[in-house]
């Protein structure tokens, strides 16, 4: 009963945060609304009994990535006046790409509804032990590949930020 109310509350907060992220003119407000959305999503994870995922979501997304976003926005001091120059081509391309993304997501959601009801093996499905078993036994190769990809991205970022390549 309480979980149902909580779900509706969190759902409202996450949708509200998402919409407000897009609609606010001030980039800092956008980031703050996005953080609110992330907290609501972490709450959803908790309701699904995935505590580990919830904690990692808060640490990584709300605690690290959004701090960096906020950092960059504050550092560059983006004003709302800067967001005026948009060409027609830019608008069209962004609309098309966003529409394609929506199409993909709708497709995934429709496909997912058929394959749903699969998990719910036990209450502890989202705990660290079980997640570790899955990640490091069943999905070891993809997991390690993702790690190498991240490492490559890190090295690339460092390489790009170097000014003199020869020295």
């Amino acid at each position: 009963m309480i979980t149902e109310y909580l779900f509706w509350f969190l759902a409202f907060v996450s949708v509200f945060g998402g919409v407000a992220t897009i609609l606010s003119r001030n980039p800092v407000h956008s980031v703050l609304y996005l953080i609110l959305t992330f907290f609501a999503i972490a709450g959803h994870y908790l309701l699904l009994n995935a505590q580990f995922l919830a904690a990692v979501h808060v640490i990584v997304y709300a605690g690290a990535i959004m701090v960096l976003f906020l950092y960059v926005i504050m550092m560059l001091n983006l004003n709302r006046l800067d967001a005026e120059k948009r060409t027609l081509i830019g608008k069209v391309t962004s609309a098309v790409s966003a529409g394609l993304l929506l199409l993909v997501m709708v497709g995934v959601a429709r496909g997912g509804s058929e394959a749903g009801e699969a998990p719910a093996e036990s209450i502890d499905a989202g705990l660290v032990e079980n997640l570790g078993q899955v990640l490091y036994r069943d999905f070891l190769l993809p997991f390690e590949m993702a790690s190498v990809l991240f490492l490559g991205a890190m090295v690339g970022a460092v390489f790009l930020s170097k000014k003199e390549l020869n020295s």
Binding site: Q51, F52, V58, G63, V67
Partner: peptide, 15 residues
Amino acid sequence: NIGLLYLLGVVSIGV
């Protein structure tokens, strides 16, 4: 059961 992660999470949003 994820007390340590909770701790890190709260610390990370403290900023």
